[in-house]
Amino acid sequence: MGDEAHRYFFRLCALPAPVSLPDEARADDVHDVLDEQQIASGTLVGLYQR
């Protein structure tokens, strides 16, 4: 019973130093910084089923 299984994707990024972004930063702003500065990344996938 219940809903079909569904997945949650979490993108993990390693940066060489802390990043400063303005309070009003949008997702596109964050993605731009990550694309420029990340030194490694990985994806964690979680499966949820009731």
Results as ranks from 00 to 15, higher is better:
Met1Asp: 15
Met1Glu: 15
Met1Cys: 11
Met1Tyr: 13
Gly2Leu: 05
Gly2Phe: 04
Asp3Cys: 07
Glu4Arg: 13
Glu4Leu: 13
Glu4Gln: 11
Glu4Asn: 13
Glu4Asp: 15
Glu4Lys: 09
Glu4His: 10
Glu4Val: 12
Ala5Met: 14
His6Gln: 10
His6Tyr: 14
His6Val: 11
Arg7Asp: 12
Tyr8Ala: 12
Phe9Met: 11
Phe9Gly: 11
Phe9Ile: 15
Phe10Asn: 09
Phe10Cys: 08
Phe10Ala: 09
Phe10Tyr: 12
Arg11Lys: 13
Arg11His: 13
Arg11Thr: 14
Leu12Trp: 07
Leu12Glu: 06
Leu12Met: 10
Cys13Tyr: 13
Cys13His: 11
Cys13Met: 06
Ala14Trp: 08
Ala14His: 07
Leu15Glu: 00
Leu15Pro: 00
Leu15Ser: 00
Ala17His: 05
Pro18Thr: 01
Val19Asp: 06
Val19Gln: 03
Ser20Trp: 00
Leu21Met: 06
Leu21Ala: 04
Leu21Asn: 03
Pro22Ala: 01
Pro22Ile: 00
Asp23Cys: 11
Asp23Gly: 12
Glu24Arg: 07
Ala25Trp: 00
Arg26His: 08
Ala27Pro: 06
Ala27Arg: 09
Val30Glu: 00
Val30Met: 01
His31Thr: 07
His31Gln: 12
Asp32Gln: 06
Val33Ile: 08
Val33Arg: 02
Val33Pro: 00
Asp35Met: 08
Glu36Arg: 09
Glu36Pro: 02
Glu36Phe: 04
Glu36Ala: 14
Gln37Leu: 14
Gln38Ile: 03
Gln38Trp: 06
Gln38His: 14
Gln38Ser: 10
Gln38Cys: 08
Ile39Phe: 01
Ala40Lys: 06
Ser41Ala: 12
Ser41Phe: 06
Ser41Met: 07
Gly42Leu: 05
Gly42Arg: 02
Gly42Gln: 04
Gly42His: 03
Gly42Met: 05
Gly42Trp: 08
Thr43Trp: 07
Thr43Gln: 04
Leu44Tyr: 04
Gly46Arg: 09
Gly46Thr: 12
Gly46Pro: 05
Gly46Ile: 14
Tyr48Thr: 12
Tyr48Asp: 11
Tyr48Arg: 10
Gln49Ala: 11
